[in-house]
Amino acid sequence: MSEAVSALGNASFEGFATIRELGPVGMITLRAKHDLPALPKALKTVLTAELPERRRIISAGEVRVGWMSPDELLILLPYAEVADRVVALTEALGTAHALVADVSDARCLFAIEGEKAAQVLMKLCPVDMAALERGELRRTRAAQVPAAFWAEEGGLRLVAFRSVAAYVMGILTHSARPGSELFPA
């Protein structure tokens, strides 16, 4: 009857970096010990993806698989595919001890783009952005809320909880205001 909508209806802001709310984006949380024998095969067959190393996020086409903790992965994929993939992953893992859940609607996703994108997060996250490696998924806080981010072509992607999407948009736009670059020039 109705189409799913993202938390902010794809709001955007142009500052010294561009902020865009994306979505709706499919997200699946998968909890399992990473040495579970059935896990790599399930990722391979259902998502054609590898198991990421510690604190890595890997891409396979439109799919991203991120290492969230020693027993948790975050999978990003097109929203329309979530229901089928949840079922497929659950089946592929069989009787192994694991939890697969659709969290697409529990999260919000932002793109922070432009050459100075990292400066936006330098104002919000206690993370050494210069040391962020390609393909690293960093969980931390953005001002007062939990967040996770990684580098993508053209900038950064940041995931947070849906209920605080407006707050996250607020802190990102505050930090990206024109003229407030940390390193002008």
Binding site: R55, R138, R141
Partner: peptide
């Protein structure tokens, strides 16, 4: 020791 991040106190 679980994820290897050198976390500051506000993340803990």
């Amino acid at each position: 020791p679980c994820c290897g991040v050198k976390a500051e106190e506000t993340e803990l």
